[in-house]
Structure formats: structure tokens, C-alpha cells
Design a protein around this nucleic acid. Structure first.
Length: 776
DNA sequence: GGGGGAAGGACCA
DNA sequence: TTCCTGGTCCTTCCCCC
């Protein structure tokens, strides 16, 4: 049984050398593996790999048990289904497209070698002591390969030269290469800087009619031609190029004897691709490999076949395709990684022929999507349509660092990540509703925690508001121990598309107001408090909408009252932005709300509405909104109504931020923090906001802790129960509010602090629920 | 039972 | 002393409708 194996032997499939890569044939695997193992052993990384390996083994064990229970009858039935589907797939087999997969050889390493000829004869790799991106073919002979940490590579090859990455350079070269691609397929699909799929069917059609002159390329052209003022060093460099791999075939035979003659390329697919590779080599002094086949899956496999600096073609005939697939190891197929490989191997499946033999069994052991994929592979089928501009699904940024345990530092890093991500999002004009926090602890265990907002976000503040809440839950869950991290990442997904822009966000906010200002009646004005909260507000809760004073009212009733008021006022109000208006917002590539004049203090409640001109107004609380002008009716704005939401809004800090921002117009010398009551400078509003945030977080936490002592260390995701919020919403809400009131009642905090807790009801709700869920 | 969110993982370059 | 980053897709669990 696999799980009875211990240590090394078991781990080989994860941690040992993967010689799947070109240039790694015939190595002394045992020796290399021994070094890798010895260097890794005992590290946290190794321990984690061991754990993962055991998980895979368990999966395999389960699968084998399942296999043992399969009856002949079931198998027969499954076979019938497989056969039926196979027939259908055969009927729809498409061989008419000519798909090319082009892959630059050891790209980063090749660029570095080109620019620094001394490296050419040395084993070298691009990356750092902690991780390598690529290695050259000399280094591969030592077992040094991409995705291997540099310090292990050094053990394998003490003379290895490690060059740091220089992405600007690679991007520039990539752009040159892509320029060539676009001449063969203007809609080519780049997969990364060094790889792309092309559909050259149309090109070949036209090419048939091209005269020789259009298929002729001069060898000296690229070297000296275009750039008359190239430096001597560069010319010298070219002398040394383009043969980067001494024993590899050249894309252009005449090059070897190159004395400046021209080369004429034919009209076939092979010739067109050879020409493309020739031009790449001439332009960049770098070589590429290519695969030509009737679909993308095959083309990808083919490009690996004659690497480096070679190409391979599968002609569009079913028989040839099937023949090609027969002996192909499943691991060579894109999408089959080490886990799938191991699972299949446990069933005795190593090559694609065995794969097709076992399809019935696979259909019983794997999910629909999985076995359909296997069936496609076994038949040599793949996508024949190079998908153009498929829409991006998410955007993220993450960072690895040395151990970090300090919460302050973690929050600060989190903000930095949100800042970077916000910039990236805004550059592409994207807004998404789901914010995911990714954490990797020092034991290499990865956790992701997601929160879906009701509205799409793209600013640093908005993303951070959600991310820091997620982070806080994680920090709290191990408290008083520190959270020891080695990686943090933030992702935004769930991008809004034109069709499904949801109704406007409502959120609670509300009553951090002063009586006098309320009387002014402009609700915007009302929302512009100085932060001196009087005790009187607690005793007499004042509805921010209708201004009614309510004495000794319970919180639920008070909230309900506000909700009712809002509903009433909405009826009289201007309708919110229609969906078509929302669409207009999205369709303009530059979302105005993403680019406030003061992005750093923009608010997390982006209520979009149109103004009289039909122009887009920015978020609800934008400082732009007129406060003392004619636009006085706050009740026209959307206000917090929580019933409409299944999820708790991350409202706590938003509201304060909002309010703070409002107050930015009232150029006061200093503001009093509503939480700690300390005067704060208002020179930097963002700074003030952050201060309030921090205070607030601490307060909410404090109050929460008072009534909810730590449950202990649970790995259970604390936010999990947020899901079920819709159910029993009202009951829960009431109960939780009771708890809040209890907390308030027993709290020694001065009234000025209590009001703030009141306003954070929903955040606290979320908190209670998630932690209540954790207890079970 | 299907849809959708959350979490975790596989896989890729 | 040191084991990345940024993306997609799939699976599983759970809840809601």
C-alpha cells in the first residue's frame, strides 16, 4: 500500500528531479535525486511536501478501493457510454486548421547569454538563490532546471552562475517576437512572454499565391541592416550568435555556412514555420521551437518534440494522429501534472494508448470533466479555435518574504498589496466583487479567505477594507499566538460584466451626527460631523433620515425604523442609476469612479448615480458631492438597508472613512478621533482614516473578545458561516443585537465609544456568526 | 438538483 | 540561510431556491 511507504521513496514523485524537460535526457538521476533529497530534508518545505504527498497517496488508496468495488456490469455499461461519446467526438473531429505552438528555447537564459557571451559556455540559470526561472542547457545536464531553488541548484552544480531576472528586457524581446507572430496570425494567442499559439490556416492559403520574393529572407538583413548605428559590441555579439546550443539542428541550414546569402522558403506549413523561426533568430539572435498540428493540444506536444531549435509536424490525418498518440506518455500532455500522472500510474496508465484502453474504468473513477478530458487526449483531440481575448477572471498580487509575525507589519503589507493591486485593476479598468486574501504560513501551508461584496471594487481603500477584515479574522484565530507568515497575497475576482451589473449597494451608515447639523437638513451636511460625539446621542437616538428622536429604543427597532424611513424616502427620490447607465460606466474603458481626484480617500460604497446631465457621479460619499449647494436631499441617496443583503457589508470603517472624507471639506485644523477621542491632525486625511480604522478595529475586537473568549486554535475557516446568513436572518440579527446590547451594557467603555460599536453592527454580526460557527 | 460562494488544490509558464 | 508568481480551472462542501 502506498501509504505504508516512508520518507524518500514516497517523496520522489514530488521533490525529485523532473526530467520531463528537454535537455535532461540520460542524466544520473539517482545521484541527482540523492543530492536534492539531502539538501531538502528537514526543511519546512520538505515537511509540507511530505504531507501533500501523503494526501495524494490517500487519494490513490481511495481510488483503488473504489476500483475494487466496480462490477463487470458497471464496466460494461461505462464502456458503452465511452464508445458512444467516442463516436460523437470522432464525427466532430476537425483536421482543417493548421495550429502552431511556438516556444522560445530556454528564453530568459538565452536572452542573458545573448547579452553576455561569457555565459555561453557556462552552466547558468536565471533567478535567485531561492528560485530559478530557467536554466541553460549546460546547467540542465547537472539536473538544474526551472522552478528549482538556487541553493539546491548550486549543490548540484557548484559552478552554476545565477543571473537575476530582468523582465523589462524579456518583455522587449518578447515584443519583437510577437511582431513576427502577428504577420502569420494577427490574432495569435500569447501564453506567456516566450510562448504563443497561432492559427496559420489563412496565412497558408494566401502564401500559396505568393511569389518567391515574398518568401525570401536575407541572412545579413537582421544582423546589420535595420540598425545602422548598432554598437560594435552588439555586432560582435551577433558573431557569437545564433547558435546557442551546439548540438542542435539549425532552423536554416544555409546559416551554418552563412556568408550573407538569402534563403527562400516554400509554401508549406513546415516552410512557413521554419521561416518564422528563421526570422525570430535573425531579429533576436534567439532560437525558438515549434509544433504544427491540427489542434492546440497536439501542437503543444509537438513543439517539445524537437526542442531546442527544432520543429515537428503532425499532418492532418486521423491515422497519423492516432499513431502519434499511442506511445506518448500522458505526462507530456499539457494539463497532466505530477498528481494526475501518479494517479494514472497507479492504474497502470503511463502512455496515451493505455489511457484509451482504460477509458471505461476512468469514467467510473473520475469526474465528468476529468474523464472527458482524458478521452479527448486519448483521441488526439484538442481545441482548434484559438480563443481570442478571453476575458480575464481575476487579478492578484502576492509577495513572499522572510518570516513575518508582527500584526502591524502584516496589515501594512496588506495595504501595500492592495495598493499595487488597485493600480493594476485601474490600469485595466476592472472592478470585482470578490476579495480574496491568500496566506502562506512558515510551514508552507496555504490558506485563502474570500469575501464577496455586494458591489465591485477597485480602489486601494475598498480592497483593503475587505482584505484587512479577512486578515484580522486570521490573526484573531491564532491569537494570542502571532500569525507567522511567509507569503501574503490579495486577489480581486468576480469582475462585473456589462450584463450583470447588480443593483446599487446599500449600506448602513448613519448616525455619527450632530443635532444641529441634522437640522440643517441637507443630509450630506448631516454626514459631515465633527467627531465630537456627545453622550446625548446614546440616550436619544436620532434617525438620520427623518430626524425623529427616539428614546430608550432597542437597537433592532431603531435600525428597522431607519430602514423604513429609507424605503419611504426612496419612493420620493430620484431613481438610482439604471442598468443601462451602469453599463455605460463599464463600457467606457476608463471607469471614472476608479479615478477620483482623491483616490486614496475614496469610499467603499460606490453608489453610482447620474446627475442632472446624465454624467456619472461618483460614489455616494464623494467629496465632490455638493454639500452646501442645491443638492440638499440626502434621502434621495441610497441608505443602509441590510435586509436586502444576504451578506454582511464591510461597513464599519467605510462609514467612518466616508464621514471623515465628508469632513475634509470643513478644513478644520484638527479632528477628534471618534474612537480614542484624541485629536488628530488632518493634514493627511488618509493618515487620519487609517488611525480611525486602527482604533476601530481594536475596539471592535476588544468588545468582541469580552463577550467571546477565544475558542482555541481552530483551523476551521472562521468566515465560513458567513454563508448561511440569509437563513434565520431576522432571528439571528435579533439575538446578536441582544448580545451587542449586553456587551454594551456590561462594557466599561464611555458612551462615546458605544455609539461607534452601534454603527458597526453588521461587522459585528459577521463576527459573531463566524465565530459562533467556529465553536461547533 | 442546480446555482453559486468559499476554500483548497492541480497545473501552467 | 534560501523552495516564486500570477493566473485558470476543477473539486468539494455547503447553503439557497
Amino acid at each position: 500500500m502506498a501509504s505504508h511507504h516512508q520518507g524518500g521513496a514516497d517523496l520522489l514523485s514530488r521533490i525529485a528531479l523532473n526530467d520531463n524537460k528537454a535537455g535532461m535526457e540520460g542524466l544520473d538521476r539517482d545521484k541527482i535525486n540523492k543530492i536534492i533529497l539531502e539538501t531538502s530534508k528537514g526543511s519546512k518545505f520538505y515537511e509540507n511536501e511530505l504531507k501533500k504527498e501523503q494526501q495524494v497517496n490517500q487519494r490513490i488508496e481511495k481510488m483503488m478501493e473504489q476500483k475494487a468495488r466496480i462490477t463487470k456490469e458497471q464496466l460494461k455499461q461505462a464502456q458503452a457510454e465511452v464508445d458512444k461519446l467516442t463516436c460523437e467526438l470522432e464525427r466532430s473531429r476537425e483536421l482543417g486548421r493548421v495550429i502552431v505552438h511556438v516556444d522560445m528555447d530556454a528564453f530568459y537564459a538565452a536572452v542573458e547569454m545573448r547579452d553576455c557571451p561569457e555565459l555561453k559556455d557556462k552552466p547558468m540559470a536565471v533567478g535567485s538563490m531561492s528560485m530559478l526561472s530557467t536554466s541553460n542547457y549546460h546547467a540542465r545536464r547537472f539536473g538544474v532546471r526551472a522552478a528549482m531553488p538556487g541553493f539546491i541548484a548550486k549543490k548540484l552544480c557548484p559552478n552554476l552562475v545565477i543571473v537575476p531576472t530582468n523582465f523589462d528586457k524579456y518583455r522587449a524581446v518578447s515584443a519583437q517576437v510577437r511582431e513576427i507572430f502577428s504577420e502569420y496570425d494577427p490574432h495569435f494567442m500569447p501564453m506567456s512572454l516566450d510562448e504563443a499559439y497561432l492559427d496559420i490556416t489563412e496565412h497558408l492559403e494566401q502564401r500559396k499565391h505568393w511569389p518567391e520574393t515574398m518568401r525570401t529572407y536575407h541572412i545579413c538583413d537582421a544582423k546589420t541592416g535595420n540598425d545602422a548605428d548598432r554598437s560594435a559590441a552588439e555586432s560582435e555579439r551577433d558573431e557569437l550568435s545564433p547558435v546557442l546550443f551546439e548540438d542542435s539542428p539549425s532552423s536554416s541550414p544555409s546559416l551554418s555556412g552563412a556568408d550573407g546569402k538569402a534563403e527562400v522558403f516554400g509554401t508549406s506549413a513546415e516552410e512557413a514555420v521554419r521561416e518564422m523561426r528563421f526570422r525570430i533568430e535573425q531579429k533576436t539572435s534567439l532560437t525558438a521551437s515549434a509544433g504544427i498540428a491540427p489542434n492546440m493540444m497536439l501542437a503543444k506536444v509537438c513543439s517539445d518534440k524537437n526542442k531546442p531549435n527544432g520543429q515537428y509536424r503532425i499532418p492532418p490525418e486521423r491515422q497519423v494522429v492516432m499513431e502519434f498518440m499511442k506511445d506518448l506518455p500522458v505526462r507530456k500532455v499539457s494539463g497532466v501534472g505530477k498528481v494526475t500522472e501518479k494517479m494514472l500510474a497507479a492504474l497502470g496508465i503511463v502512455n496515451c494508448d493505455q489511457l484509451s484502453q482504460q477509458m471505461a474504468l476512468l469514467s467510473l473513477l473520475f469526474s465528468g470533466t476529468s474523464w472527458h478530458n482524458f478521452l479527448h487526449i486519448s483521441l488526439g483531440l484538442g481545441s482548434t479555435c484559438i480563443e481570442r481575448d478571453s476575458e480575464r477572471k481575476s487579478m492578484s498580487t502576492e509577495r513572499t518574504f522572510g518570516e513575518m509575525s508582527d500584526a502591524e507589519e502584516q496589515y501594512s503589507l496588506c495595504r501595500d498589496l492592495c495598493h499595487d493591486l488597485a493600480q493594476d485593476l485601474q490600469r485595466e479598468g476592472l472592478k470585482g466583487k470578490t476579495v480574496t486574501l491568500k496566506l502562506k504560513n512558515v510551514k508552507f501551508e496555504v490558506k485563502t479567505r474570500a469575501f464577496t461584496l455586494q458591489y465591485a471594487v477597485c480602489t486601494e481603500e475598498e480592497i483593503f477594507a475587505a482584505a484587512k477584515d479577512l486578515l484580522k479574522v486570521e490573526i484573531d484565530s491564532v491569537s494570542p499566538q502571532p500569525l507567522k507568515l511567509r507569503l501574503m497575497g490579495v486577489r480581486v475576482s468576480g469582475f462585473i460584466s456589462a450584463e450583470d451589473k447588480k443593483p446599487l449597494q446599500r449600506s448602513i451608515m448613519g448616525f455619527l451626527l450632530q443635532q444641529q447639523e441634522q437640522e440643517q437638513m441637507s443630509v450630506m451636511a448631516v454626514l459631515k460631523p465633527s467627531f465630537k460625539i456627545s453622550t446625548q446621542v446614546l440616550q436619544f437616538l436620532t434617525c438620520p433620515v427623518c430626524n425623529t428622536e427616539m428614546k430608550d429604543v432597542n437597537l433592532t427597532a431603531f435600525n428597522n425604523h431607519i430602514d423604513e424611513c429609507l424605503k419611504g424616502s426612496e419612493l420620493n427620490s430620484k431613481p438610482p442609476a439604471s442598468s443601462s447607465e451602469s453599463r455605460a460606466l463599464k463600457s467606457s474603458s476608463h471607469d471614472p469612479s476608479c479615478n477620483e481626484e482623491k483616490p486614496s480617500t475614496s469610499i467603499s460604497v460606490p453608489l453610482v448615480e447620474t446627475d442632472e446631465d446624465g454624467d456619472f457621479k461618483t460614489p455616494f460619499f464623494s467629496h465632490r458631492t455638493k454639500i452646501n449647494g442645491k443638492r440638499s436631499v440626502i434621502s434621495k441617496k441610497k441608505m443602509p438597508v441590510c435586509e436586502s443583503s444576504c451578506k454582511a457589508s464591510l461597513t464599519t470603517t467605510h462609514n467612518l472613512e466616508a464621514v471623515t472624507e465628508m469632513s475634509s471639506d470643513s478644513k478644520g485644523s484638527s479632528l477628534t478621533c471618534p474612537v480614542c477621542s484624541q485629536p488628530q491632525s488632518t493634514d493627511d486625511l488618509a493618515l487620519f482614516n487609517r488611525h480611525v480604522d486602527m482604533c476601530l478595529n481594536q475596539e471592535v475586537l476588544l468588545e468582541f473578545r469580552e463577550s467571546h473568549p477565544p475558542v482555541g486554535h481552530s483551523d476551521e475557516p472562521a468566515l465560513k458561516s458567513v454563508r448561511g446568513q440569509c437563513k434565520n436572518k431576522n432571528n439571528n440579527q435579533q439575538q446578536q443585537q441582544k448580545r451587542i446590547i449586553n456587551t454594551l451594557g456590561s462594557s466599561p467603555l464611555p458612551p462615546s465609544k458605544k455609539i461607534k460599536v452601534l454603527s458597526t453592527k453588521h461587522t459585528i454580526d459577521k463576527f459573531f456568526k463566524s465565530n459562533a460557527g467556529q465553536k461547533v
